[in-house]
Design a protein around this nucleic acid. Structure first.
Length: 345
DNA sequence: GGTAGACCTGGACGC
DNA sequence: GCGTCCAGGTCTACC
């Protein structure tokens, strides 16, 4: 099998850094628990290639990318760029160090990188399919989108559908076969915008776009409201805004010990993480993530088709009750000197 | 600017 | 196994 290697930063751990955000459980991604490897297919121009990413035990070891067909030099570069995006190897490493200074709770375990998709379009679609639906519904929609509209690599791995493919898919197909419900027309309109690379898409893709303009532009996209806009921002590496949703309220109540209406709890969660400023989302997210890991075990042991589909509010509540998890009081941000003790709220 | 109600699907629950 | 209720964020109409 043809392959190539990617040299990651010295602290990079594939298992920890892939299994850091729920999208690793969404098709076409497949995390192989036994092998501790990630597989899926990528679309490279008009070519399809199946990949399997693995890492010998030990942080910082080179990543091995197995391919199910030989690639030209040009397409190999395209594949590597997409893989670097997924694994956040394309982000400035100084931001990781800065994050660990601001929130030292994550320095020992090295958590900082959040898994994402090989393309912005896939991240946007995954976000839209996670709105107004429980997690098993999101898992189902992504699986069906790949099975019905995606394409297959030589070894049978699936791609996520491209913007052009989804733009020419009939709404009835999305609704009846992919089970996306009322999202059908919104998905097609979004896909058309990405396929045509309309001005809004160019603004969103531009790393020089200021956060406020980026947020405003995202809100103008069909199917994107305040939650989705903030989530797409973190997927773009802009971590200052929190995608507040019902999970934020659950976290505020069960872990931070806040009381009051959902609106009041959301406001307090927002205020709690605001001092982390440009790192707010990562502090918030890893706090939630370790809560899930307390309930379900380490994320690198989660199977897509079993543990990965169990994140319903009711399941989490039952697990939390069984685990007897009491409200915790996590550390606040450390903004100036790393030697100053972290403030507690 | 704030809010009520519709939009769909699938899990949970009671019978 | 069936019917009913509920969770989930966005959008539109209305005040």
């Amino acid at each position: 099998m043809p392959s190539f290697t990617i040299k990651p930063p010295p602290d990079y751990s594939l298992a920890r850094d892939v299994c850091s955000y729920g999208y690793f459980l969404l098709a076409p991604n497949r995390w192989n628990v036994k092998e501790q490897s990630l597989s899926r297919a990528l679309t490279l121009d008009k070519d399809i290639v199946g990949i399997v990413i693995s890492q010998p035990k030990g942080a910082g070891k080179p990543l091995r990318v197995g391919l199910d067909r030989p690639l030209s030099k040009k397409t190999k570069l395209l594949a590597e760029a997409q893989i670097r995006r997924m694994l956040r190897l394309d982000e400035d490493e100084s931001h990781v160090r800065e994050f660990h200074k601001v929130d030292p709770r994550w320095k020992r375990t090295g958590r900082a990188r959040l898994f994402r998709s090989p393309t912005l379009f896939e991240d946007v679609l995954k976000t839209v399919t996670s709105c107004n639906v429980t997690w098993p519904g999101t898992v189902q929609m992504n699986r069906r989108l790949c099975e019905v509209v995606g394409r297959s690599s030589p070894s049978g791995l699936l791609t996520f559908p491209s913007a052009a493919q989804l733009a020419r898919t009939r709404p009835e197909t999305l609704r009846s076969r992919c089970r996306v419900g009322y999202r059908d027309l919104r998905i097609i309109e979004l896909s058309r915008m990405f396929a045509k690379r309309v001005p809004e898409v160019r603004i969103i893709e531009d790393p020089a776009t200021p956060d406020d303009l980026l947020h405003e532009t995202l809100l103008s996209l069909p199917g994107v409201g305040p939650y989705a806009a903030a989530n797409i921002m973190q997927l773009l590496g802009r971590y200052s805004r929190l995608p507040l949703d019902t999970e934020s309220v659950r976290h505020g109540r069960s872990v931070l010990g806040y009381k009051g209406s959902s609106k009041q709890v959301m406001k307090r969660v927002h205020d709690h993480f605001a001092p982390f400023e440009s790192h707010a989302f990562r502090s918030y997210w890893f706090e939630m993530w370790i809560h899930y890991e307390k309930l379900q075990g380490p994320a690198h042991t989660w199977e897509r088709d079993t543990t990965g589909t169990m994140f319903t509010a009711s399941q989490l509540k039952k697990l939390a009750e069984a685990a007897g998890l009491l409200p915790e009081h996590p550390a606040g941000p450390r903004k100036t000197s790393p030697r100053r003790p972290a403030a507690r709220k």
